[in-house]
Design a binder for these strands. Structure first.
Lengths: 235, 235
DNA sequence: TGAATAGTGTCTGTCAGACATTATGGG
DNA sequence: CCCATAATGTCTGACAGACACTATTCA
């Protein structure tokens, strides 16, 4: 049906909060590297919010789903081909984009740990009180360094991720297909920011994982049993 | 900034799944009326989907938030002035509206039980297996009788409502400000479709409610203590 | 041996489900 | 007395948090 698009109506864009686990070298050679939760940001080259840090995303084309739009943008900008995505929330404040009325369908994205280098700028997420900060090398970002309402979007995404940790198997989207239980615990703690007692944590996730018959062989340490996700998990 | 609206981009509309508790007279005069979960639908007067039943909602204006849009539509169509609303999900299938590309920001709405007559068509929600049907008097609707993807939207809303029953105090948006514990249990059962043991249920919601010093006086029965919602509830 | 990591055993309190029991008003 | 509704008591098993303990590797 022709003509229905020709009056002024809101624009639709997408934004993705993509989290990933990054590890940094430990201070001692006997210690294992400490995993951190990181988020993908990029520095905005044009106005508005030129020079501020923003989430990946873009305007939604008329023949495209928001999820396809995000996947395309992530592939273009960051060579990110494999990513779990779920819809997060739709942000609709009238003043959120000074160029005009733009609503944003935001997604939560999770990338598996892997050795492959990814383009883009991954910032570790730090919770200081109830304020989030983001760090990469010597760069430290606070709310004012982010464009649009993207700080609020990241907050919402982190809340969702933390909530789903408790009652779903979402954590495995951040882990490689094979892992040790200590690795799972470290990722869990990196997300919540709170320490877990090992014995209790192992019982808590026991029903989500399956043993293999293999072990790690890290130099200097006791070998750890390798686990995989338990795919036939009903609850 | 002028001119940014003049190329073809998706339309944005809103849809609301508004639930309410309706009671129908019991068969025996000694029995209390049985509460049912009902949803607000209206019969579509124009193409597409003329004659099918649809959710209230409409196209989003450029200077309006989706929530304001819904409240305006509900007030116009159904004289519904007070309603709890939360964003549910944004439905974006490319083919969901044959007139063109339209994405829909869907809301979950809950209305308190009250005596006031409301305009509009309230259909009771029945779960038969995993299929929903909707009934009002002798009219019985199945998936095929609903327009657009509104059946799917209602399904999503019901799932959300059922999930939030467990870990939030959302049920009180469907109850009057004063209620008995049996009333709460009946509403809970109307939503889940499953019976609850009275002793267990009372313990489960004890921390969400506060006693008053008053009692009901229904003829033919033992008086029941009247409760209100416990507003200072942290967990 | 000791440091660092891997993994287990046990106690406790809380809470949900199952089920039995008591209480009250009125026909 | 009986019915319908209101409300409480008790047992169980599951589970989460706290905490102490054992096991393995290698420098």
């Amino acid at each position: 049906m022709a003509g229905i698009y020709d009056y002024e109506h809101p624009f639709v864009c997408t934004d993705a909060v993509v989290f990933r686990i990054t590890t940094q070298e430990a201070d001692s050679y006997r210690k294992l590297p400490e995993p951190k939760l990181s988020v993908l940001l990029y520095n905005r080259p044009v106005e508005p919010f030129q020079g501020k840090w923003c989430l990946p995303g873009g305007f939604l084309n008329i023949d495209e789903t928001p999820e396809d739009n995000i996947r395309r943008k992530l592939a273009e900008k960051s060579q990110l081909m494999e990513c779990y995505l779920e819809q997060l929330y739709t942000f609709c404040d009238i003043e959120r984009d000074e160029r005009g009325r733009v609503i944003s369908i935001a997604y939560l994205g999770l990338v598996k740990e892997s050795e492959e280098k990814l383009n883009g700028e991954w910032f570790t997420v730090n919770t200081e009180g109830n304020r989030l900060t983001f760090e990469k090398g010597s760069i430290r970002l606070t709310e004012e360094d982010l464009g649009f309402d993207h700080y609020k979007i990241i907050q919402t995404a982190l809340e969702r991720l933390r909530a789903k940790l408790r009652y779903s198997d979402i954590i495995f989207h951040l882990l490689p297909t094979e892992f040790t239980l200590t690795q799972v615990q470290n990722v869990y703690e990196a997300i919540t920011g709170k320490p877990e007692a090992a014995a209790n944590f192992r019982r808590k996730i026991a029903h989500m994982v399956k043993e293999t018959d293999r072990y790690t062989s890290d130099k200097g340490h006791r070998p750890a049993k390798i686990f995989v996700k338990n795919s036939d998990w009903d609850k």
